[in-house]
């Protein structure tokens, strides 16, 4: 039996809930919040960009980030999984200021206590540019699958050693 304390896990929904499909990450964590009952898992949402992610993720051991994505290469509602190894190859001009890859590099460089395992679960969206509430139909339809996938990833993160 290990006497190590359980890993601290964060699931972070990113986006803007008054900006159409951009709010998919927020919508997902709001559902997850009602489903999860695990003291080890913090459920957070943020509409902030860039360096704010450093402050949010600092101090956790593992993280799952839920966000929208626009590749234009797959239909809206498609769920895309990335780990940070993949993500780092995309040196991103993200609206998140420096972008998640740069945030990760920064945290590493500054020797911050940062999650060693960061997964990104993103959904291809249709319209993240209109100021309005609610998701487009394809994205809304895919939301339950998105949430389910997030749950199973969280279970993996919790059970991995």
């Amino acid at each position: 039996m290990s006497s190590l304390p359980p890993a601290k896990i964060i699931v972070l929904g990113l986006g803007n809930d008054i900006c159409g499909d951009d709010g998919i990450g927020i919508a997902a964590v709001r559902i997850l919040r009602g489903m999860l009952d695990d003291a080890c898992i913090a459920v957070e949402e943020s509409s902030e960009a860039g360096l704010a992610l450093v402050e949010i993720l600092e101090g956790y051991d593992r993280a799952l980030i839920l966000d929208s994505i626009r590749t234009g290469t797959c239909p809206p509602g498609t769920i895309i999984e990335m780990d940070t190894a993949q993500f780092r190859r995309v040196i991103a001009p993200s609206p998140h200021y420096a972008g998640l890859p740069e945030v990760l590099d920064l945290a590493e460089r500054l020797e911050l206590r940062f999650p060693s395992d960061i997964r990104v679960l993103a959904m291809e969206v249709e319209d993240p540019y209109s100021i309005r509430e609610g998701l487009t139909p394809c994205v809304a339809e895919a939301l339950p699958r998105f949430v389910e996938r997030a749950r199973s990833i969280l279970a993996e993160l919790r059970d991995s050693t």
Partner: peptide, 14 residues
């Protein structure tokens, strides 16, 4: 620009 949107970039940046 388009400051409210948070979607991940889907393409190579440059």
């Amino acid at each position: 620009h388009a400051c409210a949107t948070h979607s991940l970039p889907g393409q190579m940046p440059l």
